[in-house]
Simulated assay, not measured.
Amino acid sequence: MAKREVDIAVISDVHLGTYGCHAKELLKYLKSIKPKILILNGDIIDIWQFSKSYWPEEHTKVLRRILKFVTDGVPVYYLTGNHDEMLRKFTDFNMGTFQLLDKLVLEVDGKRAWIFHGDVFDVTMQYSKWLAKLGAVGYDTLIWINSIVNWLLTAMGRQKMSFSQKVKARFKEAVKFINQFEQTAADLAVDKQYAYVICGHIHHAEIREITSTQNTGSVMYLNSGDWVESLSALEYNEGNWTIFKYHPDNFKTDVDEDDKTDSEDLNAMLDVKNLLERFKQDPH
């Protein structure tokens, strides 16, 4: 199966280690592309909710695939989010073509892109982190229940449904929060004279031009969505940004031939459960 060449691929909010994570679908996506740059824009590993009792093999395979990009010489930028904020103590760590950062300014065909997760704009994160963590557990539980319901609906030949999207649609405050998030990101990007501002965090894939509140200019706002519900990524190729949306019909066959390549060496590097357990226990 030929791989699609893309200049830049951006993914965020994968939440490895949770029931809602669609690691199998993400793995198929990562195997299908040949990026010149890969950006992991926060909440890739959900250290908040990590439990040694739940870490499927597919979740390790996603990390192995990312490491394979690194060993192949592809620049990989891991930008920390709130669910993997424990990694922020290692900011500026780099190994080969891999870099761990809090934010990134990238030159994209002569235009500057400001890239960061976006939790800095979340008031709940700033003042009530315990409430945000409680909400994350509730969200993951909702997704888990939703997956069971969708399995039953599929077995009955009926269309799947999204509980969280229905909840968001019913509450104007959720829509208001998304709009405020996007506007705040755009205002700051215009002030800093960036051409693009790229975020994650709110699980809402988007590409749109936003004019600043003060009407001093505009910026292209982009959000990569997530791999819990929308199963989306941002791609830049031949001068254009697009939103990739996973659809199973486009991935009829698995690409597993190169999954065995260097698997023993990579698995030796990925004692994920013990490593994450140490992160959670570390008080600093």
Rank of each mutant, 00 (worst) to 15 (best):
F279H: 10
G157D: 04
W114S: 04
T211H: 08
M269P: 01
I8W: 11
A185V: 01
S53N: 14
S162M: 03
I145Y: 11
V123D: 14
D256E: 15
A186R: 04
K160V: 02
K245M: 08
P283D: 12
N94Y: 13
V175C: 06
F93H: 14
K160L: 00
A205F: 07
Y77M: 06
F181E: 02
T18R: 06
D92F: 12
V255L: 15
L276A: 05
Q49S: 13
D92C: 07
G17R: 02
Y196I: 01
S51E: 15
V120S: 09
V272F: 10
M269Y: 11
A169M: 04
A268F: 07
E107K: 12
D259F: 07
L153M: 03
K192W: 00
V6Q: 11
I37W: 09
Q183R: 10
Y77N: 06
V108I: 12
D249A: 06
K192P: 00
D187S: 00
M269F: 10
S232E: 09
I33C: 08
V137D: 00
Q99V: 07
T80L: 03
F181P: 00
I45S: 13
S32K: 10
M95D: 13
M1Q: 12
A186K: 02
Y78W: 15
Y29A: 13
D226H: 05
K172E: 14
F244D: 10
R158L: 10
V62I: 14
D43T: 09
I210F: 03
G17E: 06
E85A: 12
G138A: 08
S147E: 12
G81E: 06
R158Q: 08
S147W: 01
E229M: 11
L142A: 15
Q183L: 05
V74D: 08
K36F: 07
R208L: 07
L27V: 01
R158E: 08
L38P: 07
S32E: 08
D43Y: 09
T154C: 00
H117G: 03
T154A: 12
L222W: 01
K176G: 00
F69E: 10
L26V: 03
L152I: 15
H201S: 05
E257K: 08
K260H: 12
S263E: 14
K252R: 15
D254R: 12
L275S: 13
V108C: 04
D72F: 07
D254P: 03
I207Q: 10
T216Y: 11
V70A: 06
E235A: 03
F50M: 02
V62S: 13
F121N: 09
L100Y: 06
L26K: 10
Y127M: 11
